[in-house]
Design a protein around this nucleic acid. Structure first.
Lengths: 138, 138
DNA sequence: GTATATGCAAACCGTTTGCATGGCT
DNA sequence: AGCCATGCAAACGGTTTGCATATAC
């Protein structure tokens, strides 16, 4: 388990052309170690690292997440002005935002379809379409 | 012009059940005085008020925008973690986000259609669907 | 008169940065 | 050896808050 987790993290870093330092391996392991997509906040990932006994400073978590995004390994998702969310899944897809838990997750595939994307104004292109489905407890 | 601007602002406040103080009338006039929808940041509205010769403190702009939202007169739009945008148009509609100008506007009506909204998980309802089309200069 | 809105400045919170130290290749 | 990542703490920027004053009803 630990072995494959680390291997996966290491491969992931290699794919992004990033040097496999101890902290990056720790964080990469937490993010992609089990092959699932993950949605984290910097704070949350920092806590997860502490809990796992890894020593990574909060500043490094921020820097590392930024490096992962620049390397094309992750995605920043904006759903709430007060926090940044980072997603390991790279294709453009809709998210659920659980308002009372301050949490995001992928919206079930195929349940939301966008037809007829707006024509961008002259001189502009559509960089991405962010879709956030806000969920509220009944 | 000035007269009808003020009247519109006053009516708008009344509709939200808010006391028509001098500052609220100023801001309401700037927001809905010409009957158009507006997308503002707190900072931007504050500057607009200054320019118009109205004296409103930044804290009051924030408090007032929050009051307008709570009263159901406006909407907060999240497109960028670093700033809050407020929209006078109340129906659920997609936005353009102009990345290099840090500005939002309504996406042209009818050009984006969402079919088959995701089924909310048991115990939850869909509060809103936020759609942001990010535009980048070519 | 009473409740509520305003202004100011200070607190706040998530995020970023400067700089010295330590690790990777 | 040289470059780059890390950690810490301090700076940062947008937003909120506490408290005294002023205003609407």
């Amino acid at each position: 388990m630990t072995v494959s987790t680390h291997e996966r993290g290491r491969e992931w870093l290699t794919k992004g052309g990033l040097r496999p330092t101890k902290q990056r391996l720790s964080l990469a392991g937490l993010l992609v170690g089990d092959g699932e997509n993950r949605h984290v906040t910097a704070e949350g990932l920092h806590t997860a690292a502490q809990t796992a006994g890894e020593s990574v400073s909060l500043a490094t978590v921020y820097n590392t997440l930024r490096a992962f995004c620049q390397a094309g390994l992750m995605h920043e998702v904006t759903v709430d002005g007060t926090r940044s969310y980072f997603d390991t899944r790279m294709d453009d897809h809709p998210h659920f935002f659980w308002e009372e838990e301050n949490r995001i997750s992928d919206a079930p595939a195929g349940e939301l379809h966008i037809t007829s994307v707006p024509t961008p104004p002259a001189g502009y292109e559509v960089a991405a379409i962010d879709v956030v489905v806000r969920l509220r407890k009944l």
